[in-house]
Design a protein around this nucleic acid. Structure first.
Lengths: 117, 117
DNA sequence: ACAAGTACTTACCCCAAAGTATGTAACTAT
DNA sequence: ATAGTTACATACTTTGGGGTAAGTACTTGT
């Protein structure tokens, strides 16, 4: 157990910045490499786990379920599992998840304007 | 020198995903804890280094200049230094930086709607 | 003489995110 | 019998972002 100072900036952020800065709030939800990509693929409709895997070949299975779980916890993605064998698990965006379209869209706009692709 | 496998997902991303996914492109520019906050503070006009420091008390000086440098390299922020003593260095948003307003704004919208603050 | 302010720089540490590799349960098709 | 499919789980390692602490050069105020 390595102690973390009570007064560290990290702790301060966890308590204050994350809840008071809306942009950081969003980053916490869709930040990282894979989340926006997963969300993007779910924008075109619900997908099975294996479909997502094929749609994003570079992602490892660990990263895929890990992020799907986090997205569920953040109520951006809904998981529907059918109790059949082989299992059929379908992921879809929640209302909050769908609402992210505006955010991703403005990002794409900016990227196009500013030298990407 | 620890070798990194040629075929690692990371390398693949550096070469492909970063340039082909606009959202990831944006994340690379404004991702992380401090960049959006710094940009936010520059939205209200040019600021001196020390002004930024006072405006964001939790940030360390190392993080502040580090990110200011990265923002310069990404052409989001402009640095203006006057050769006087004590030094006067002013940071301001470039056109690209100002254009980020739409992106940050849509993030704030979403955050308000979805349970932050 | 020396503290204080300005805009940094440098060395070092820590941890969480990301990646690698492998295993599992339950069934189906050959 | 055994290979394949589906949707995961788990142990281990790496790496980069972020943090701490301290120092620098130059000048002004007391």
């Amino acid at each position: 157990m390595t102690a973390v100072k009570e007064s560290s900036t990290r702790n301060f952020n966890k308590g204050v910045a994350l809840t008071s800065c809306p942009v950081t709030f969003v980053m916490e939800k869709i930040g990282g490499y894979w989340k926006p990509i997963i969300i993007f693929h779910l924008m075109s409709g619900p997908k099975r786990y294996s479909e997502l895997k094929r749609a994003i070949p570079q992602i490892t299975e660990k990263m895929l379920i890990q992020h799907l779980k986090q997205l569920q916890n953040d109520d951006l993605v809904h998981r529907d599992a059918q109790a059949v064998i082989p299992p059929v698990v379908t992921y879809s965006l929640t209302k909050s998840g769908e609402d992210l379209f505006q955010v991703l869209d403005s990002m794409v706009d900016w990227a196009i304007k500013n030298g990407s692709v």
